[in-house]
């Protein structure tokens, strides 16, 4: 059964004198425990898409169905993870209290007993390997560690669906590779469904079961790739696997080809390399 159905959603921004289509008729289905990557150039409306999926922003038309009910406010069981971890963690709370945040809310009444709440938070802080930093403030940690705290905070609520908005976009390459593998381990262990948005095609292919390729202005789906690379993935083996390169090249070719088609809008100033992260 499908966990999430996105039925032809569009988003139109209306300002005083113009209508802009940010997203045009995007539709796809997501099965439970699937890991989906959404790739597309920066500024192609990926964040808008996630804002709509998470119920923070209503679509202009179309609808989003999560577990059989329509999404119009942030639904239970769904967590959106932002790229900007330093701004999404609460700077006045220490790490453990940050992880507790989601659990303290009314929605999570089942954890209302303070002791259970703390145990739950500690369990997931341990899962991301940061239990010994529980009494630090987030801004005392490195970027990669902060994003792990944010991941622990999301996991602690035991979401069925995690939306991730370029979560590793502002990290250095080394940390990024570490966190990619870390995320895969977490995913294998807790089996949530993940929709992972990135502008880095290789990252998208490396992580996912399926890659959805978006084109820009207005944003629409160009193609979906079933990604059958063997798991567990490995930074070296997977990335040198001929099949990996084949998928990557095809996506890359498709996006750059699209760009050439629209020669008037884009007169070749942008090189394909920008899609390689």
């Amino acid at each position: 059964m499908n966990l999430l159905s996105v039925n032809d959603i569009s988003k139109e921004f209306v300002s005083a004198n113009q209508h802009t289509f940010a997203i045009e008729k995007i539709g796809f289905e997501v099965k439970e425990h699937e890991f989906i990557s959404v790739v597309g150039p920066s500024g192609c409306g990926k964040t808008t898409l996630l804002m709509m999926l998470s119920g923070l922003m209503p679509p202009t038309s179309g609808e989003i169905i999560l577990k059989g009910s329509k999404v119009d406010t942030p639904p239970p069981g769904l967590i959106l993870l932002f790229q900007d971890y330093s701004r999404s963690l609460l700077p006045w709370r220490k790490v453990l209290k940050n992880v507790c945040f989601g659990l303290e809310l009314k929605r999570q009444r089942r954890w209302f007993n303070g002791q259970d709440l703390k145990k739950q938070a500690e369990k997931y802080l341990e899962a991301v390997g940061l239990l010994k930093f529980k009494n630090h403030y987030p801004w005392q940690l490195s970027g990669g560690m902060q994003q792990r705290v944010a991941i622990a905070r999301a996991l602690a609520c035991e979401p069925t669906l995690m939306l991730m908005d370029e979560p590793f976009g502002s990290l250095d390459a080394q940390t990024r590779a570490e966190l990619e593998d870390f995320l895969l381990q977490i995913w294998e262990r807790f089996r949530q469904t993940i929709i992972f948005v990135t502008h880095d095609i290789e990252e998208g292919v490396y992580l996912s079961d399926r890659v959805i390729v978006l084109a820009e202005s207005p944003s629409r789906i160009v193609k979906e790739f079933q990604n059958d690379l063997p798991r567990p993935r490995d930074q070296i083996e997977t990335r040198t696997d001929p099949r990996f390169l084949e998928i990557r090249n095809e996506i890359l070719r498709m996006i750059t080809h699209k760009e050439k088609d629209r020669g008037v809008e884009n007169d070749g100033k942008e090189s394909p390399s920008k899609y390689l992260g």
């Binding site: 999404s88 945040f101 009314k106 999570q108």
Partner: peptide, 27 residues
Amino acid sequence: VDRTLMETARTFGATPWELFKKIILQA
């Protein structure tokens, strides 16, 4: 108060009162 902070709290399902008490007042 940072928008990202507010949106984060909202995706966790914070009610307006919780947003106010746990985010706005603190920040």
